[in-house]
Write a protein that binds this DNA or RNA. Structure first.
Lengths: 160, 160
DNA sequence: ATTACTGCAAAGCATTTGCAAATGC
DNA sequence: GCATTTGCAAATGCTTTGCAGTAAT
């Protein structure tokens, strides 16, 4: 089915991300004296083929068969590397499963999660950022990153 | 050791919370046509004996032996009820374990978590609340609750 | 050649669940 | 007495890990 390595079936946007991100990941790996492998490129490509949120296990399932086979263990290990490299972010809001989302070419954004349909709605708000920065200054805390989630009901579900 | 039922060893503050919360939980259970049981009172008392954050499994461990024995399964089941009743809130920020915190008699507050020592620092900021309310209005999202976490380094650890 | 990585399957581990006995109503 | 809960232990399901073979440098 998908020809990840050749990239022929990839959407233009996805291919662009991969082309941009892969060399950076290679640098990261080299600095870390880790190796540049096929499996790692396949996982990175698959990650960028998912547009928004995905869970580790789904990704592993997608790669568990077919021409671009990568084992579950390796998928989990590679995701951890990609997190360290700053390409993805782990999210553990709704259940036990770890969700991931892109942080590469994707500005810092917050989420609303609908209790009814489970949808993730993204939003940004500069005011919030400022207030958080203020709070950190006040408490002498050095921010690395932050996470904001609003739980509730989305418009669609409220109308039902 | 602890005499939860008699409440004799409980700190004054904890006893007060329990005395206030237990009748409310009883109401909740009755409305839900659930039963008012010993085990549920023991769990509720133990929850209020923990001052801030605790993880489900620790609580279960504490109650797995001694005079106020309650089984793991029941502890998990009761925590779920207490969450539904609005006494506690689940937090899944740092690892796979589910953490809980009180929401009873505890104003809405946010957290900073130190990467180095893992400490939870609580803070509140009305400005943030307002901005979130605004964002919800903008996106026609009905907020039930929200969660803000800032990751970074606390003052103590930064000085090391 | 050396050393890291992969695949596989087995192990971990918090949480959930099935069922018989116990308890609340 | 009848229905819900409990305790126990077994099952679940995501994630991690050990190890022998494989691939990268």
């Amino acid at each position: 089915m998908s020809k990840v390595q050749e990239g022929q079936d990839l959407e233009e946007e996805v291919r662009q991300s991969v082309d941009e991100a892969w060399p950076l990941f290679v640098d990261f790996l080299k600095k870390r004296q880790a190796r540049v492998t096929q499996a790692r490129k396949i996982v990175l490509t698959q990650v960028f083929s998912r547009h928004d949120h995905f869970c580790a296990d789904d990704l592993a399932a997608e790669l568990s068969s077919g021409p671009n086979h990568v084992s579950r263990g390796t998928v989990y290990r590679t995701l951890a590397l990609m997190e360290e490299a700053g390409f993805v972010r782990v999210i553990r809001d709704t259940d036990v499963h770890a969700h991931y989302e892109h942080t590469f070419n994707h500005p810092n954004h917050e989420h609303m999660i609908c209790d009814a349909c489970g949808e993730f709605i993204e939003f940004t708000d500069d005011g919030i950022m400022e207030h958080i920065a203020d709070a950190c200054k006040r408490l002498k805390f050095e921010e690395r990153t932050h996470r904001i989630v609003v739980f509730g009901t989305c418009e669609k579900c409220r109308r039902k």
